[in-house]
Design a binder for these strands. Structure first.
Lengths: 353, 353
DNA sequence: ATGAAAGCGCTAACAG
DNA sequence: CTGTTAGCGCTTTCAT
């Protein structure tokens, strides 16, 4: 692989001059600059960033760690963060903390070894796993920002959605519609004061006589079981709040297979406002948390700390307000009639034939 | 940031000894090794990979460039490739060739500057854009493999699905069911002998009297227009072959909004076998191309060339066979009855109420 | 405007 | 088993 010395030699100048020419330094004669640049181009020269990075002690690279990429929530987030980062002149190094061989701590370690300039860490449902690794990283001067709430005053800036308010909005939507028996479907992490459940319950409390049942579920299987359980109840819920759109999608599929029509028999709302929700039948009512805001806040905050470590003082918390998108999967309950519990015959694929 | 010299000093040994101890070299006394490792751990030392990479002239990193991450096709591919690469001891550097500021050529250039050991380039619908950049890269000794067919005998290994066979399978499925008027929906790149359209047409030809109409579409808007056009036809098609599951999802949403029921009035099949297809109502019939195979083939081929540049001789082509997954979105046409063209009243969200 | 020289942090001969 | 030395490719003072 061709290097700077080769170019310098060909041009009959020193390495320093060649370097300056390629960096468009003003302290060089225009004629030589052009000559050197032409030679470099023709020779197919490209800087060796690893040498350059070593020399300038910076990689112009941001680390991004997310739990997984197959969860439809993350791709758009990655895209947006990539846009912001690249727009600001930074490369992005993506790590999947859920990949078989890696974990959150490993990702952080790898990123530190690579000497990335900063890190955006998107927390998983399990909260912050690698608290120790994170603290150490910031202690060594690598700025980081957390995307997602974690407990215990982490030593870095944190941007997260106000899930509690999101839950509250859903609860009010349900009670306003007249629902009195509601279910929560999803993994139930405790996100402290910003937990969806906290807000949801607060919302329910404002209407007397509402009962609530929590069904933990993360996988397809668990959703299937959970839905079956709910439908088998003496008095099944008339509305389900799924903690994520992806869970809601699974739930809708299950309900359909059990010939329960949405929203007539059961209302469903999700969380995240993914495109997926608009493909469902009926289109999904959901809570939106402006990923654009999340992404740009995270990147801006990180870049701020990058140039000024003391930027805006001690660890900040930036909370993004949610918004309810009412679509087709919610309606008033059919109070007069209980839902049918026996599977329908024949074409099993659509409850609405 | 703490460096090797610091550790060496603290341990009272030379840098080389410290380096060897941390590399678990056998040529060192066990006691010193332990001592040094302990000191390094306590000090929170981590190797500086950028220095190390410069020295050993290798980054143990593979570049992966994909057109976009928001297209639901790619996340799983990325996940699988990441798994394979990491399993083989390589890091992955992801680049999005569709991101605002980057293009395929820029990605390749960036990857070359970073001195990645090899590159997997997933082609977009437009085919290989940065042919020049790719050639130059391999000329400089960076092995690459293309994921997706491109024309003109590219200078690198290529793994791709046999889309033609996929198209053929769909055509036969349609004609077997009795469809005689079929539509193709999607961007229409010409993928040479492996084009979906080629195989699809071949399949149609085997049954006399089948008419076909092609409707180009990539975006939501275009799908909407395309579907409207088809429905407005004197004799609308009874089956639609969407070039991707994501397009099929949009099409289904449009059809539903127009109160056309699937598959009774129109059959729909997709391509890619994404999870998305199972969330649709009805669940989508589609063509599968084993992404696992794609991913592992690509990585293995690349790793092969990495250790033996002459691995298996001149540029190889590895073609992955497709498989038809018949689900709920296809059936015999209702030949007796033409589809209703007027929108239904009332609840507009579901054609099947 | 240009060159000489130093050094970023690390590993790998080579020598002892 | 351990230390000395050189050098990966680049940028950047510091001289000239």
């Amino acid at each position: 692989m061709i290097k700077l010395a080769d170019i310098a030699e060909q041009a009959g100048v020193s390495e320093s001059t060649a370097s300056r020419a390629l960096a468009n330094s003003p302290r060089i004669s225009a004629v030589k600059r052009e000559l050197i640049q032409r030679i470099a181009l023709e020779a197919g020269y490209t800087v060796n960033q690893v040498a350059r990075n070593l020399r300038v002690q910076s990689t112009k690279t941001l680390g991004l760690v997310i739990p997984e990429i197959t969860n439809p929530f993350f791709p758009r987030l990655v895209q947006l963060i990539a846009d912001s980062a690249i727009g600001a002149g930074y490369r992005l190094q993506l790590h999947l903390s859920g990949v078989s061989q890696e974990s959150e701590g490993d990702c952080l370690a790898a990123l530190r070894e690579q000497r990335v300039d900063g890190v955006i860490l998107v927390t998983s449902e399990n909260g912050l796993v690698a608290r120790e690794a994170l603290s150490q990283m910031v202690a060594f001067g690598v700025p980081a920002v957390l995307l997602g709430w974690v407990s215990g005053e982490p030593p870095v800036d944190m941007v997260f959605g106000n899930d509690a308010t999101g839950g509250y909005l859903v609860a009010k939507h349900f009670t306003d519609l007249g629902h009195r028996r509601v279910a929560i479907l999803g993994a139930v992490p405790h996100r402290g004061p910003f937990d969806r459940l906290v807000g949801f319950r607060k919302g329910l409390m404002e209407t007397p006589g509402v009962t609530e049942i929590v069904v933990p579920a993360r996988t397809n299987e668990e959703v299937r079981l959970g839905i079956d359980h709910l439908l088998g109840l003496d008095k099944p819920p008339t509305a389900i709040f799924a903690y994520q759109d992806s869970l809601a999608a699974m739930a809708c599929r299950c309900l359909r297979q059990s010939c329960v029509s949405i929203p007539e028999e059961i209302s469903v709302v999700g969380f995240d406002n993914l495109e997926l929700g608009t493909y469902l039948c009926p289109q999904l009512t959901t809570v939106d948390l402006s990923m654009e805001q999340m992404a740009s806040c995270a990147v801006e905050t990180l870049l701020g700390r990058l140039k000024t470590p003391s930027f805006r003082g001690g660890p900040n918390q930036i909370v993004i307000p949610p918004q309810l998108f009412v679509r087709e999967s919610t309606s008033r309950p059919r109070s007069t009639q209980s839902i049918k519990k026996t599977p329908c015959e024949g074409a099993s694929h659509c409850a609405c034939d």
